[in-house]
Design a protein around this nucleic acid. Structure first.
Length: 554
RNA sequence: GCCCCCGUAGCUCAGGGGAGAGAGCAGUGGCCUCCGGAGCCAUGCGCGCAGGUUCGAAUCCUGCCGGGGGCACCA
């Protein structure tokens, strides 16, 4: 019996009590019956607090309700015992057979186990990274490359229609500075004021000159355009390659230029003007965001006629909505938190509900430590740590896992020395090792000619305490995925996999799976192989949600 | 000045109202006759402070203290 099924049983039991007039609730009262895994194993396999929540509306002491409910629950053949404890918890112990069924259910569902419908019907646009095409993807972006991608995976697993989008800021004066920086490098001159310095600028210059020999002889205006446009293309391709290598794919790469060329900006202005939120002052055109919780109004068109960056942001939001997204998620760094209110105000100005149609997640910054020293990043000096540096250093799996493992609202310190360690202090290996260990057991079973899939599976044989613990953890997976999706917190999946790894190792330590020596294969071996297969499946599914591999061997 | 995030074990950090608050690391001591020791077991009086809401608060609210980040007709 799954936790959901048990919760439904508790709910049905409460309904039965009401219909039998043993419990009286106000008309239309909605019973919210949930079960949780108690921290303490002595409190049974599952516990429900519903008796305590019903005490007030039913005008009955919680323990009295608990007794009634426990008696009702014990009528079910799946329930071994139900007892009232503490202030009014009902602690439920399942029959081994009922609990063991979880294993066969997981194997049957395969890749689908953990998927759900909690986000079905939502059309979500999730935009992340959106690095300027003037430099490589750096460490700060990389946190979002991992987390954003994983959020998208988790949302999809819960039935949402998700568009992963990367916004390319290919318009504006930084593009000219970028082009000029490359051009200067090609001529052996230093970068201009406010330009770009990294060694990659020299590399771009060299590549462009090699491909287009005559470029340095062109008139300066034409050269600038050439270096800018060719540099842009090369940089964008490099970014895309880096992200592909990192396992992060986008459904849409959206160019700011096309936003303007397609007329999307004009359309957005029209819409906002029609809704009465545009006005002119001091020669500039403003959006009255202060009507909606912004500190002050924002300029869309400067007095000199140029559009602000914010104008693009505004049009871009309106365009996303016009393309059908009913919820736009933005993943931004902590240095952009000042944008939250104005983006929400944009949604409100466009006639949307900021609480429903827009969602801005702010992630704290990432630091990297090596040899006990912080690796300093300075854009000015050009010594940025890139996504490729990180992957070269520790590999995709360790990089992704350690970036996802922590909630994004706390600053993150990546210790490279620790990430390289192949031991327990590096959780990604701990998890992958458990998964690979199972794969090995399943391989050995096949070599011994044990066809556990077709053999009779008796779930009641999984009655060891460690087996019961493991089954309980396996059963939690769907709820973990659902909460990770709802809260946009994929780190919950990573943490869950660590507890699953522990539960598996503990089981494996005391429960022999395969027959020893000439011992004949019996039902217990078969049942444990089902349990192993189920565990392996959850590792595969869970790691898949993180974009981390589940190797057969390590 | 205003805004956002964070204060949990020696260290790095989990804990979206529930029962003596957890994990890894570091330290100490155990566990290999065959399925992967990258493993398992034992050993731990810590929720920054003060109020409040609640049957119940590390979790929600308010104020303070301490740390990090941010305020643009830049991009």
């Amino acid at each position: 019996m799954t936790p959901d099924a048990l919760a439904a049983l508790v709910s049905a039991s409460v309904t039965d009590l009401i219909q039998a007039n043993k419990l009286c609730l106000p008309e239309g009262y909605l019973v919210n019956a949930s079960v949780e895994r108690p921290k303490n194993r002595e409190h049974g396999d599952y516990a429900t607090n519903v008796a305590m929540t019903l005490a007030k509306p039913a005008h009955t002491p919680p323990r009295v309700i608990g007794e009634l409910l426990a008696a009702e629950l014990e009528k079910s053949p799946a329930v071994a015992s139900a007892v009232v404890a503490g202030p009014g918890f009902v602690n439920i112990t399942l029959e081994a057979a009922s609990q063991g069924e979880v294993a066969s259910r997981i194997v049957a569902q395969g890749d689908h186990y953990g998927q759900g419908t909690s986000q079905r019907g939502r059309w979500i646009n999730i935009e992340f990274i959106s690095a300027n095409p003037t430099g490589p993807i750096h460490l700060g972006h990389t946190r979002w490359a991992a987390v954003g991608d994983s959020i998208a995976r988790v949302l999809r697993a819960q039935g949402a229609d998700v568009t992963r989008e990367f916004y390319i800021n290919d318009r504006g004066v930084q593009m000219d500075r970028f082009g000029e920086s490359i051009m200067n490098a090609a001529h052996g001159r230093p970068a201009p004021e406010g330009g770009y310095h990294g060694s990659y600028v020299k590399d771009l210059a060299a590549e462009i000159v090699a491909n287009d020999r005559g470029v340095t002889d062109l008139p300066i205006d034409e050269q600038l355009v050439m270096f800018r446009e060719l540099g842009y293309r090369l940089m964008l391709e490099a970014q895309q390659e880096s992200l592909t290598r990192f396992g992060t794919e986008f459904d849409v790469w959206y160019s700011e230029r096309t936003l303007h060329e397609s007329g999307a900006v004009d359309r957005a202005f029209e819409q906002l003007r029609g809704q009465g939120h545009l006005y002119e002052a001091g020669g500039a055109i403003w959006l009255r965001t202060s009507d909606f919780d912004d500190d002050k109004d924002r300029v869309l068109v400067k007095a000199d006629g140029d559009l602000t960056y914010f104008a693009s942001d505004t049009a871009y939001y309106v365009d996303k909505r016009a393309r059908g997204a009913d919820r736009c998620i933005y993943l931004l760094g902590a240095d952009h938190h000042g944008y939250v209110n104005r983006l929400r105000a944009v949604a409100a100005c466009a006639g949307d509900d900021p609480d429903a149609n827009i969602e801005v997640l702010i992630g704290q910054l990432v630091k990297m430590v090596k040899g006990g020293e912080e690796v300093r990043m300075s854009k000015r000096a050009g010594n940025v740590i890139t996504i490729d540096d990180l992957v070269d250093e520790v590999g995709v799996d360790a990089a992704r896992y350690s970036l996802i493992r922590y909630p994004v609202d706390s600053p993150l310190v990546l210790d490279v020395d620790l990430l390289l360690r192949r031991s327990n202090d590096n959780p990604v290996y701990y998890v992958q090792y458990a998964s690979a260990r199972i794969a090995s057991v399943l391989r050995n079973a096949a070599e011994l000619g044990i066809d556990w899939r077709t053999a009779a599976f008796d779930p009641a044989l999984l009655d060891h305490e460690r087996e019961s613990d493991l089954l309980g953890v396996l059963g939690e997976f769907p709820r973990i995925v659902a909460s990770a999706a709802e809260l946009r917190e994929p780190h919950r999946v990573a943490r869950y996999l660590e507890t699953l790894a522990t539960a598996y190792h503990r089981f494996y330590d005391v429960c022999r799976v395969l027959p020893m020596g000439e011992e004949p294969v019996d039902g217990r071996h078969v049942a444990r192989l089902w349990l192993c297969a189920a565990s392996r499946q959850v590792f595969v599914n869970g790691l898949g949600l993180l974009g981390v591999s589940a190797p057969e061997r390590m």
